[in-house]
Amino acid sequence: MSQAAYVAPAAVSVGEDPLEADYTLGVADKVRVIVFDEPSLSGEFVVNANGSLSMPLIGDVRAIGNTAGDIAQTIQAKLRQGYVLEPRVSIDILTFRPFYILGEVNKPGEYPYSSGLTVDGAVATAQGYTYRAEKKSIYIKRAGEARAVKMKLTPDLKIRPGDTIRVGERYL
C-alpha cells in the first residue's frame, strides 16, 4: 500500500498528511519507481547507505534530501540521455524510515513509521509508559537535527520518519 505517489510532471498525489507533500527521502525509505512502458526499468528500491537509489541503466540517483518529485525529474532527465525518448516516471513511497523511542516505555526500540503517527501512537506501539514516566512533556530529536527538543505532550503531537522520541522519568 503506497503512502505517497509522484507522477512527473504532475503534482504529488498524497493522503491527508501534509508531511507527505514535501517529504524528503532518507536512508532506509523504500520507493516504487515506475517508468511507463518500460517494465525492465521499473521496480522497488531502498535508499541505500550512500543516500542513493541504484537504478538499472542510469546507475545511482541521489535520493537523500530530495522529494519524490525531484527524484522523478532526475530519473527522467537521465533516461532522456540516450535511453528512453520521452520517459514518464511515477514514484510511490512504500515505506518510510523507522522512528525510535527510548526512555520510560515498556518496549523501547525501533518501529516502523506510519502516516499521521502521533507521540501517543508511538508510545502505544512501544507498549505504553512505565510507572515512572513523565507524561506532561517529551523529548524529540528530529532526523537531521543535532539535539532533542523538549515539547509539551499533547494528543495531536505528530512525529516524523527518523525521529527519536525520549520519554523522561518523572520526579516526585
Rank of each mutant, 00 (worst) to 15 (best):
E104M: 05
Q76C: 06
K158Q: 12
A122Q: 04
Q81R: 12
Y139A: 12
P98N: 12
A68D: 06
D60G: 04
Y139N: 09
V14N: 11
G15N: 13
L79H: 04
L19G: 07
E134P: 00
S115F: 03
S137T: 11
I159N: 08
A143F: 13
V14A: 15
R32D: 05
E169L: 02
A126K: 02
Y83A: 07
R142H: 06
M55Y: 05
M55K: 07
Y83K: 13
V47K: 07
I101E: 02
M151G: 00
V61L: 09
V84A: 12
E169F: 00
M1H: 08
P9A: 06
R170L: 00
S137W: 00
G69C: 07
E20I: 15
L94H: 00
L172F: 14
D29N: 05
A126N: 02
E20C: 12
F96R: 02
Y129S: 01
E145G: 03
V46Y: 00
D92I: 07
K136E: 06
Q81T: 11
K136I: 00
R142N: 02
V119W: 03
V14F: 05
S40L: 11
A124N: 14
P108S: 08
A28E: 14
N50Q: 13
Y113M: 14
F99P: 05
K141I: 05
V46I: 13
A21I: 12
F36Y: 12
V33N: 01
N48Q: 04
I165Y: 03
T125D: 07
V14K: 14
L157C: 04
R88Q: 12
N48D: 15
R170W: 00
L19N: 08
Y139H: 07
Y111F: 14
L157V: 05
N50P: 00
V84E: 08
E145Y: 10
Y83P: 05
E86K: 15
T154A: 12
L157P: 01
G43L: 11
R147S: 12
L85C: 01
Q3L: 13
E169G: 01
Y171C: 01
R147I: 03
T154Y: 03
A126P: 02
E145P: 04
G103K: 02
Y139T: 13
L94T: 04
I159K: 08
P39C: 15
V31P: 07
R88S: 12
Y131V: 08
P155T: 01
